[in-house]
Nucleic acid binder design. Sequence first.
DNA 1: TGTTGACCTAGACCGCACTCTAGTTCCTAG
DNA 2: CTAGGAACTAGAGTGCGGTCTAGGTCAACA
Lengths: 143, 143
Amino acid sequence: MLPGMSTGSGGLSIGDVAEATGMSVHALRFFEREGLFLRPIPRSGGGHRVYEAADVEWLLLCDRFRASGMPIATIRRFAELVRSGPGNEQDRLALLRDHERSVRARIAELTACLEVIRGKVVAYEEHVREGTAAGVWAPTPSP
Amino acid sequence: MLPGMSTGSGGLSIGDVAEATGMSVHALRFFEREGLFLRPIPRSGGGHRVYEAADVEWLLLCDRFRASGMPIATIRRFAELVRSGPGNEQDRLALLRDHERSVRARIAELTACLEVIRGKVVAYEEHVREGTAAGVWAPTPSP
DNA sequence: TGTTGACCTAGACCGCACTCTAGTTCCTAG
DNA sequence: CTAGGAACTAGAGTGCGGTCTAGGTCAACA
């Protein structure tokens, strides 16, 4: 029941999971080495990884974490908290709030940069439209 | 007139520029090797770089580019356009608009991630407040 | 039987953007 | 004259987040 394990029960091959998450099989093995899963991924008789739907859900969340700039080390800390069971929800919450703060900060920074960039775009638009040279760089700076 | 060249005319030492821009002297030499300046930075008799205020302004803009995720290679292309003088303002504009688009896209992505993260934060807040377990991970996933 | 094709491991390699080192030279002050 | 600090060069090293390779194993199909 292996290659394209897709048939049958709930077991998913690494290829299935790669397809479901958009991550590469390399990345999935890398994540496992890095201890980012919530449990040891079990193996089939032949040593192949057998995932469950819950692993995919977790990976999708990890993917959002990564996409929002959370480092692998932090994902690992979060995974460790979840793995070590109930009782540390305050810690998980603190970690998530920290990350939320950092994402907001990053958005704010990008928004500020955006204004600078827009300023340049506007200056160039003006320059192109009517030959004025305000805010546009000359061949050699000023001196 | 060199170390702490700050005294006298308009010439700035690499240390002055590092302080003015918040970049390291290493980074300034790196930028130069990478061809990111608008002109060859002239040297004093003893081979020390002598910058002008306009270089600092340019560096501050580059810093905003970097902070908004523009790769070095793109900054180099922009610098090349500016160096090669008037006539290519359309190209410079196109490059800037491209970057503007990518920054907006990044902000949108971060904003989307933020909602996912907020969802988790809210779930954990609820969980911590009243022991419900919706959206919160159990010691071992589901199965 | 033997050829796919998906999977396995360990570990080397990559791109990016710096950062740091080693060894030297230069300038000014004491 | 000498010591100090700041600058110089070329090139090696770093951290991150993967990606890729080499050399196999496993299971099914023709």
